[in-house]
Amino acid sequence: MSQTVDRALNILPLLAEGPADLGQVAARLGVHKSTALRLLRTLHDHGLVYRQSDQRYRLGARLFALAQEAVETLDVREIAHPHLVALNEACGHTVHLAVHEDNEVLYIDKVESRYPVRMYSRIGKPVAITVAAVAKLLIADLSEPERRSIAERLDYPRYTPRSTPNAEAFLKELATVREQGWATDLGGHEESINCVGAPIHGTDGRAIAALSVSAPNVVVTAEELLTLLPLVRRTAEAITREYAGTTTTTTTAATTTPA
């Protein structure tokens, strides 16, 4: 029975490449056409494959429905939390997880720094969109019209001399973040706090959350914090793999320290 199940499941990645006829399926599985037909009929009965008018088979609508249901039941916070804890244990600094909802970027999880001097933040609290690393990551992933619409309706409070001054500067920074795949807030919200972050991607490749590591400069300098970027990005990729069953490519950028 296990061999039958294995063969049936091997049909699905074949059809993911495109429609295939009975002979192609049998050849890929290395079985007689009668065996392949029996497997295809079983999958067809369950809606996992569909027989077209040209007698070729393709993936069935039920398979897509199941995939969507599975995605909708995933809780990124639940999946990410052990990774956030591991990242915190590795670096010792405050780790955040954030999402973009209803025109706000919100912290949905946090692991506190082990140092007595730490940044203040609260789960469920909106972040400062124009300066926060997690906000830049999530908004940078939107389409160009969406990014521009958001940038043009935001206020640009001068939290510090390093705060983003206007929409033009914000859009320019978002373009950089989009290209490089990571973001920072180096004293833009609070002069004494620095932050580096990376995106977490969903099944469609879009950023569904972002994580960051933050620390006061009395504990670690901005330059020292930036050396954690490869670890931060690897953590985000690990969460992406577990959440979406895939990963993004960060090759050279993931193993080098930004200037």
Rank of each mutant, 00 (worst) to 15 (best):
E237L: 12
Y243G: 02
I129S: 11
P165Y: 02
I123G: 08
P230S: 10
A222T: 13
S143R: 09
I129Q: 08
L226A: 01
L138I: 04
C195T: 01
D185K: 00
D75H: 12
A236T: 01
V105L: 13
E69I: 11
I123S: 09
Y120V: 02
V213A: 04
I11H: 07
A238K: 09
K136A: 02
V76I: 14
C91Y: 08
R51L: 15
E173R: 12
A167R: 10
E223N: 07
V127L: 12
I200G: 02
I200W: 08
T160N: 13
I150D: 04
P199K: 05
A80G: 05
W182V: 04
K125E: 15
P19F: 03
E224W: 06
A151L: 06
N103C: 14
Q3H: 08
D21A: 00
L66K: 01
L225A: 03
T94A: 14
G30H: 02
H32W: 09
F170Q: 06
E78C: 09
T247Y: 07
T184I: 13
D102E: 12
V31H: 02
V25I: 13
E242V: 03
T256Q: 14
I108C: 00
H96T: 10
K33D: 11
T176N: 11
L39F: 03
T221Q: 06
L63S: 05
A133C: 09
A236V: 01
V218L: 07
A238I: 04
I108A: 00
H100W: 13
P258W: 00
A151W: 07
P199R: 05
H32P: 06
P19N: 04
P165D: 00
T35D: 02
Y120G: 02
A90H: 08
E190P: 04
V111Q: 10
I193H: 10
G205A: 08
L59W: 00
A151F: 05
V131F: 14
A151I: 05
T250H: 07
F64R: 06
I123R: 10
R206T: 15
G245H: 05
T247M: 07
T73R: 14
L9R: 08
T184N: 13
L43T: 00
K110W: 00
H32N: 08
T221R: 08
Q180K: 11
R7S: 06
E152I: 09
L15V: 01
G60E: 04
H100F: 14
G205D: 09
C91P: 06
L154Q: 13
T203W: 11
Q24G: 09
S192L: 12
R158N: 00
Q3Y: 09
L225H: 03
T184D: 14
Q55T: 15
M119E: 15
H201Q: 10
L59D: 01
L97W: 03
D155R: 08
N103G: 14
Y107W: 12
G30N: 04
E191V: 13
D141K: 04
D204L: 14
A259G: 11
Y107I: 11
Y107R: 10
L40K: 03
A183M: 14
V76M: 10
L66M: 05
L229S: 02
L211T: 01
T184A: 14
V177M: 03
W182I: 05
A27M: 05
A236R: 00
G202V: 12
A238H: 05
T251D: 14
L142F: 15
L226D: 01
I129G: 07
A183S: 13
H83S: 03
A169D: 15
K125C: 10
L37D: 10
L225P: 00
R122W: 08
P165F: 01
T130N: 12
M119H: 10
P19A: 08
